[in-house]
Structure formats: structure tokens, C-alpha cells
Design a protein around this nucleic acid. Structure first.
Length: 270
DNA sequence: ATGGCCGCCTTTGGCGGA
């Protein structure tokens, strides 16, 4: 039996609900995790989500910014929404699959702060927030999955491209927030100290380029191809033997009125 | 750096994204 889990920063779920429907029709993930839904829970287009075949949903939104959601073909239990950095800004939701091939699997869906422009926490509060968020992720017991039997998946827009070949030019981006040496090291520490396996890079090792985001500002994103890998799929070691495939849906960046991120679809054999 | 865009708001310009 296989379980497919997709993650996608949708950049407004209300504006792009038909884009979500297109992706679901074409790829049929069992579980879909969204980030940047940008609406309060009462405005979330749940009727459309049900029409796509997802009977089970868990959402955590706020007005205008951020927001995360999980849609599932299988029943969910133990839904938790954790606040980071003493803010209530809808950047995390966790669920456990209660049935199906992945029954018992815990899924954490994250939207890590972007961090503003200036990569100096002393003068840029947003960058300090991003680093503080990573500190809290690293310290959280629930994200320490190494060594045990825990079946846990962490997905989301982590807003950091940690490896050299996660960006089009590591040298040219070294002072750009999302690829500074400090962020790269801190995200790697969160993963390593937590015991996580980077599923995308386990299946597509460096030096192959791997991007999930292309700026809206690029006049010809496809030809220029100045992308970054900001979206991630991490697995606890107990799930690593189940890794089968990761698809990065580059073509979705070229759809009408696209998100600047594309879906990432992970397949596990369970 | 891509910086030339996009989406949100009790909107018409400012903020946040990355």
C-alpha cells in the first residue's frame, strides 16, 4: 500500500481553490498540506475541499497572512496547533492519521517565517523571529524523532534553501535571506539534531539542482530558472525505508495565476 | 538579489512575502 503526501504553499487558498482542484484531479494525493492559506477558518472554502474528495480536514488560519491546512482521505485525530515565539500567527498544525496505510503516522505542517530582507537579527526583527522560530523547533520534543519507532513526517514551507544546489547560485545568494550561512546551518541543525531524514535529497542527491519556488519578479521564470528549494519533506528514521518517490511539480508554476511555490508530492510504501 | 511581482486589507497605498 502506498501513501502520498503533498505539500504546497498556495499563496491564498480562496484565490486559488480551483488551482488546488486541478492539482488534486491530476495527482490525487492522499494527504495535502497547504501553507499561506491567508484566511480565517470561517472563510476557508471547505465545501470545495470536500468536493475534491477530502472528507477530513484540519485548518489553522488567521486574517490575511500565513495559515496552514491539512486535507486527508483518511480520518484524522489528535489535531494540534502550536504557537511559536509567543505569537498566535498560524504557522503550524499537526495531525495523526487514524486509518489507512499510514495509520498512526504523525504529520507536522509548518510555515516558517520568511525573515525580511536584512540577514542581521540585531537590526531586523523579522530575521530574529525566523531564528527564534528555528530555536523553538529544535527544542521541541515532538520534533525529536531519531532513534525510536516514531512514524513522523514534517512538511512545509521552511523558507530556507539549505544546500548549495538548493539555489541557482549559492555564491550570489549567500547574503540573501533564505540562503545565508547562518540559516543554512540552523536548519541543518534542526534536522540533524531532531534525527530527520531529508526525503527530497535522499532521493535526489546533490549536485542535482532542486527548486520548489521561483520569484514572481522574474520576467521569465522558466528560462531564467533562478529557483530555490524552500519547501521540504522530512521523515523520521522509522519511515525512511518506506521512501519511494518525490515529485516536484514544476509545471504548476506555469499554470494560470500560479502560486510562486509548486507542489511537492512524496510517496511512501507502507 | 529577482528587486521590473503578487495578495491582503474594513483597500486605492502600505505591508509582507522571499
Amino acid at each position: 500500500m502506498t501513501l502520498t503526501i503533498a505539500t504546497w504553499n498556495i499563496n491564498s487558498v480562496r484565490l486559488r481553490i480551483e488551482t488546488v482542484a486541478r492539482f488534486v484531479a491530476e495527482h490525487q494525493p492522499d494527504v495535502l498540506c497547504l501553507q499561506e492559506t491567508k484566511c480565517i477558518d470561517g472563510q476557508f472554502p471547505l465545501a470545495d475541499v470536500k468536493r475534491m474528495g477530502y472528507e477530513h480536514t484540519a485548518i489553522h488560519g488567521q486574517k490575511g497572512y500565513h495559515g496552514v491546512a491539512v486535507f486527508s482521505r483518511f480520518a484524522l485525530k489528535d489535531v494540534d496547533r502550536k504557537a511559536f515565539c509567543d505569537k498566535n500567527d498560524a504557522r503550524h498544525i499537526a495531525v495523526t492519521l487514524a486509518e489507512g496505510p499510514g495509520a498512526g503516522t504523525r504529520i507536522h505542517n509548518f510555515y516558517v517565517p520568511a525573515g525580511g530582507d536584512e540577514p542581521d537579527p540585531a537590526i531586523n526583527e523579522k530575521f530574529a523571529h525566523k531564528l527564534g522560530f528555528l530555536d523553538e523547533m529544535e527544542a521541541w520534543d515532538a520534533l525529536r524523532v531519531g532513534g525510536g519507532a516514531s512514524k513522523t513526517v514534517l512538511v512545509g514551507d521552511l523558507n530556507i534553501a539549505p544546500l548549495e544546489h538548493d539555489v541557482w547560485s549559492s555564491k550570489q545568494l549567500t547574503k540573501v535571506v533564505s540562503h545565508t550561512p547562518l540559516e543554512r546551518r540552523r536548519l541543518t541543525e534542526v534536522a540533524t539534531n531532531g534525527g530527520w531524514v531529508d526525503m527530497m535529497r535522499a532521493l535526489t542527491p546533490e549536485p542535482q539542482k532542486l527548486y520548489t519556488w521561483w520569484s514572481y519578479r522574474s520576467p521569465d521564470w522558466d528560462a531564467a530558472d533562478k529557483g530555490r528549494r524552500l519547501d521540504h519533506v522530512w521523515l523520521s528514521p522509522a519511515l525512511a525505508p518506506a521512501m519511494r518517490q518525490v515529485k516536484v511539480l514544476r509545471e504548476a508554476r506555469g499554470w494560470d495565476r500560479p502560486s510562486d511555490h509548486v507542489p511537492v508530492v512524496a510517496t511512501l510504501a507502507l
